[in-house]
Amino acid sequence: MLLLAASIVVSLSIGSASVPLSDVWRILLNYVTGAAGDGGADPTAIAIVTQVRLPRIVLALLVGACLSLAGAGFQGVLRNPLADPFTLGVATGCSVGAAFILLFGYHMTVGMWLIPGVAFVTGIATLGVVVTLARARGAMNIQTLILSGVIVQAFLGAVVSLMSSMSQGVVNEINAWLMGSISARGWEHAQLVLPFLAVGAVVLIRYAMALNLFVFGERHASHLGIEVERTKLSVLIVSTLLTAAAVSVAGVVGFVGLVIPHLIRLIVGPDYRLIVPLSALGGGIYLLWADTLARTVASPKEIPLGVVTAFIGAPFFAYLLYRRKMQQGGTL
């Protein structure tokens, strides 16, 4: 929590126009408490902090929390340490629906809620396809699942690219969004994500103990009194919903749900009652820093957020794969 607060303040002060840390504190305190007077701070600084950076930072926290929770959910219920909204193809699946709506501008007429709604539908359909592809005689191999995730993801990525190349005006917008970005977003985007995050976090925390019992297998869990099918379905739906919400505002930001639950697991052990809430927190902080990097490293140009997370996440993924291979005596 302390780390969270510190991260917010430091990140607020970093940017193309640097604002001293002490000023950030003052501005933030005044803003939160609604105190009158600007405490002597520069009005431009106030505007930068509260209107440009703060909503963006809040959105980074929310999106990071969503993706990380979704990753923890997928990993727990599929008993697959390599699962994550991105590697399963679910994020790309969600992006098909979202891109479709963005392309035709339906969200302007029907409402913002349409984007995550349709993204959820295409996301869950994608998950269905990936799981069906990977399943043979009821058993599911860990690597096969990821492989079919990658295949489906390649196909759907092409679909989104096709959509964006057929459109004229929104090409850049969709392209930037495809690579994952939360630039030029405002409070309304944060408001869109928040309810999904709240519901998702509550449901996953409730199922945390059940996820613990899944580690020894589904049959084992059912012998201990868990309604296995209902638990699986609920967790998969909620994880997909969290992914859909994140994708709707930020596009495809990969590997967050892979990296964070793993790091948390390394620190606190295998108990999902700790992993779930801490993943939400950790995912938020992680994405906040990733986004801060994205907007500052090549300033004044911005790197897409998805590029930053892929630079960190893909090597991490490779490391996990390598470690698994070593554990299994060289065969993958």
């Binding site: 613990n212 580690v215 020894f216 297998g217 697991r265 052990g269 295998p270 108990d271």
Partner: peptide, 8 residues
């Protein structure tokens, strides 16, 4: 076959 080796 027992329990899989996990960190609990």
């Amino acid at each position: 076959g027992g329990l899989s080796p996990v960190g609990f």
